[in-house]
Amino acid sequence: MLKPLLSVRDLRVDLNTRSGVLHAVRGISFDVAPGETLCIVGESGCGKSMTSLALMDLLPRVARRSADEITFDGQDLTRRRIAGKLRGRRMAMIFQEPMTALNPAFTIGDQMVEAYLYHVGGTRAQAVDRAAQMLEKVGIGSARSRLGQYPHQLSGGLRQRVMIAMALMTDPELLIADEPTTALDVTIQAQILRLLKDLQQELGLAIILITHDLGLVSRIADRIVVMYAGAIVEEGTAAEIFDRPAHPYTRALIDCIPQPGKTERGAPLGTIPGVVPLLIGRQDGCAFRDRCSLAQPRCADDIPTQDAGSHHWVCIHGGQA
């Protein structure tokens, strides 16, 4: 692997809640290489958003972050001053809700140029030129006139394109996208993903794509991280994960993907039976064991990490079990 662009070691996010400390992210480690797409998948509530917000230092006030290491291009992101220089410039983020992520009081153009003017500088005219150029790049026609519009005048799909264009204004090396298509309808979802893939190839952008939909990931991921209950349970290349899924949870996720031909038309979307464990307090043994068909008594003990090259998983069973 290339020298990583982003390195994360033992990242933890704790939230103070009324019923106690909630460990939303429980010591996860991963790397992102320049220009690669890393997908983080897992069910709702497994800590994906907390992970991405922690990287951008955007956690809610009730959350506390700790990590052995978070570095971007070798620079220590846990130091406020360094993070402040990189955030919004060399690393950018887009969010799940394009309807609310833009400020209703300012025009698209105004919101697009401000980070550019702040980080890169130059004249306003230059920034406006760049904004128009970026809108065209994300497939928005008559870009100039769009710049004068307000967010409420745009559809959800268009707003997400604007968000992407805005994130790319400063020519970042890493784009974190937290469920960027979940709020959009299916045809628009496909378009946005296609767009991200194209932009990545054109700009050599690294992407962290966060989603609960493993089906979405097959088209775009280079590598996949599967999270469960705040921890990484399996990690590997897209081929490894889809061809040789080793962790029972990953296999359950894959079985949930609707298959053309196999899945009945109009059948309810597949879900894994059982519920996600509470994230408050300690977790001993495998967090998945209440829902796992292969569980054994020793799953309540410490579970070893198994390795097969770039492929890792946390389960008592070997790859072919």
């Binding site: 955007l58 955030r87 969010f95 609310t100 400020n103 209703p104 401000e114 980070a115």
Partner: peptide, 26 residues
């Protein structure tokens, strides 16, 4: 607490600008 203020912070704007431009206006 709005998403658009989070967006403004994600853009790396200084806290002053986030508070007085993006939040106060609304």
């Amino acid at each position: 607490n709005t998403d658009y203020v989070r967006t403004a912070r994600a853009k790396g704007l200084p806290a002053r600008r986030v508070v007085f431009k993006h939040a106060l206006r609304n």
